[in-house]
Design a protein around this nucleic acid. Structure first.
Lengths: 171, 171
DNA sequence: TTGAGATTTCACTAATTACAGAAAGAAAAG
DNA sequence: CTTTTCTTTCTGTAATTAGTGAAATCTCAA
């Protein structure tokens, strides 16, 4: 494999590890993404030097995130796998999933705590305000994420590109 | 400890674990944050039922993120620790640190790959475009983050609150 | 200066997570 | 239907990370 590709694969692996994706799963994704083509599982495992079974499981994980898709190639017995093309789509999938796993449960927990405090009199006021502040912050962010997520892609690109202009408009 | 606080502490611990912060460190932060007061290390460790040494290390980690500060209390021998108050400030610290650890090195890697490809003729064109696209995406996001980070807090709050309006303005 | 309280370091154990390899399970070709 | 090729499941091991407890270090009051 090209040394440059290897470098990106290794880097992607390290970064993936910090995102809670296991290292080799992230490496596999990098391999698929940066080579831009579909790979059969066994070639992935010779390329990265990991067990066939591990590649299989990692591919399943990547598919569960929605960032890798199977692709049937004509006249080929083996299943091939490719990374989704669009970078925006890629990071949308990652963010959506993280929101679902991290933000949504936290919102739920904060709402439950708020509800539970409603009746009780003997709740520490410090706790009460801390929860209320955190909840309103999360709700604000949640709504914002929804707003942005609902924009068409081009609008979102504009938004990101017009950062400084935006600041002026807001004043 | 109040059952409600316990619940938040446990939840925060789970979420922290997914952010690469170790579970008990996140629990400690939740304890400090949601009780809103300064705690001495030994009380934290009886409260959470973990070893004194572990609390010490976790507090150090939290301080390295900047989300917990030591506080000297008059007439008290023991050091006390408290969470930073502002929620915006809290998440800014977390995001800044994650950017520094994850985005910046990735930008560096992408730039190095781009530079290395400059001279070479025999680079897979697929790889070339994949790197170029990824780099421009990261640069765009990096610039955007900088723009937002530079806004005064109130502007940022406005930005988040005016999500839908914003979409209309962009069109 | 000594010693008690408080904190950190360090060496070890427990628990989790990553990964390997064999074996079982499908799907397609003959 | 049977053999071949490919994929997944399952069980065990390696490696990493979390957490413990004792010993060493530090700090301050007496």
């Amino acid at each position: 494999m090209d040394a440059l590709v290897t470098k990106m694969v290794l880097h992607w692996g390290e970064m993936g590890a910090r995102w809670g994706i296991n290292r080799t799963a992230a490496q596999i994704h990098a391999l698929l993404h940066f080579t831009g083509r579909a790979w059969p599982a066994d070639e992935i495992c010779t390329e990265l030097g990991v067990a066939r079974s591990h590649v299989s499981n990692s591919l399943k994980e990547l598919q569960s995130w929605g960032v890798v898709h199977p692709l049937h190639i004509m006249g080929e017995r083996r299943e091939h796998f490719q990374s989704i093309k669009g970078i925006w789509e890629l990071f949308e999938l990652l963010l959506d999933e993280r929101k679902r796993r991290e933000v949504d449960p936290t919102l739920k927990a904060l709402r439950e705590a708020t509800a539970a405090m409603g009746g009780e009199q003997e709740v520490d006021p410090q706790f009460k305000t801390a929860v209320a502040e955190m909840l309103s912050f999360f709700e604000m962010m949640d709504a914002w994420y929804g707003d942005i997520r609902r924009m068409p892609l081009e609008t979102r690109v504009k938004l990101v590109k017009s950062g400084a202009k935006l600041a002026r408009w807001l004043r």
